[in-house]
């Protein structure tokens, strides 16, 4: 019997609520004993910081002066959300994807590359042996960084090049009983932020070749993920937040607190 992988699609929410729902998703993975996925949006262009990025660095970055900040429980660099497709996936620690970080990244990123190929988009997993024009720089933004397994896209009709843009990055929080991985597919360049915080998205690079809201792409992507795990996705009609409002509000209070945001 195929593993059923529930997929919830949530409407826009603020940063603390989204981080809280992702943590709640990890609890759901433990309760169900298998992978779970949530796709979601943002009520405003929001910058999520990596778990240990200094908040002062964010506040001194003019390109994001107007954007609300939230600190993720996961690592990596800052992401400007609002014109991206954001996802969270969680597995119990004993799941095959729970053992080592890279296997979890690859499961979702390689599946995206396979799905993108159906739209004619050429993308690849970035490898550390590739030349990195940004090597040695301490980039604040996730999409200025390169890590093994990030998804980079070639430009239409062009051969793979060292400056191909990164279109998806993910990060993880490894909890005692589960691993939650969340990440961002950059659909188009973020509005309402300065040039330093704008990075070309899939639609900027490939135009009408890709469905503009990435709706169908998201489905095909998650079907590819499920296929790789020997399972199938089960689209849930209700939002993930339904019935979990109290728990999410409880967790969101922590993510909204100055103590959490300014921990570093």
């Amino acid at each position: 019997m195929l593993t059923q992988i529930p997929v919830w699609r949530d409407g826009p929410a603020d940063g603390p609520t989204n981080m809280a729902a992702d943590e709640c998703l990890a609890e759901e993975a433990i309760a169900l004993g298998g992978p779970v996925v949530r796709l979601y949006g943002w009520t405003a262009t929001t910058v999520s910081l990596g778990a240990f990025q200094p908040v002062a660095e964010a506040r001194s970055e003019p390109a994001i002066a107007e954007a609300p900040l939230v600190r993720r429980p996961s690592g990596g660099g800052a992401i400007v959300h609002g014109s991206d497709l954001t996802y969270a996936a969680a597995v119990p620690k004993q799941h095959p994807l729970g053992g080592r970080p890279q296997a979890f990244y690859t499961a979702f990123h390689a599946a995206l590359i396979a799905a993108l190929a159906e739209w004619g988009v050429v993308a690849r997993l970035w490898k550390p042996e590739e030349p990195d024009p940004r090597a040695g720089t301490n980039s604040f933004f996730c999409f200025d960084r390169r890590a093994e397994g990030d998804v980079v896209a070639s430009r239409p009709g062009a051969a793979p090049a060292a400056d191909d843009p990164k279109i998806m990055g993910s990060a993880q929080r490894r909890l005692a009983g589960a691993v939650v991985q969340h990440g961002s597919l950059l659909v188009r360049s973020a509005p309402g932020v300065g040039p330093a915080a704008r990075h070309p998205g899939l639609a900027d690079l490939w135009g009408s070749a890709v469905d503009p809201g990435a709706e169908h792409l998201a489905i095909r992507w998650l079907e590819q993920v499920a296929h790789g795990l020997g399972g199938q996705i089960v689209a849930r009609a209700e939002p993930f937040t339904d019935g979990r409002e109290d728990r999410i509000a409880q967790l969101a209070a922590t993510y909204a607190s100055p103590r959490w945001l300014e921990r570093r």
Binding site: G50, A51, F52, P73, S74, G75, G76, P101, Q102, Y105, A147, E148, G169, S170, A171, Q172, R173, R174, L175, A176
Partner: peptide
């Protein structure tokens, strides 16, 4: 015992040290 004692970040993955 079992409470977080610290945190460590590797390749974008943050883990608690218990």
């Amino acid at each position: 015992a079992g409470e977080s004692l610290g945190e460590i970040e590797s390749v974008k993955a943050v883990s608690d040290i218990y």
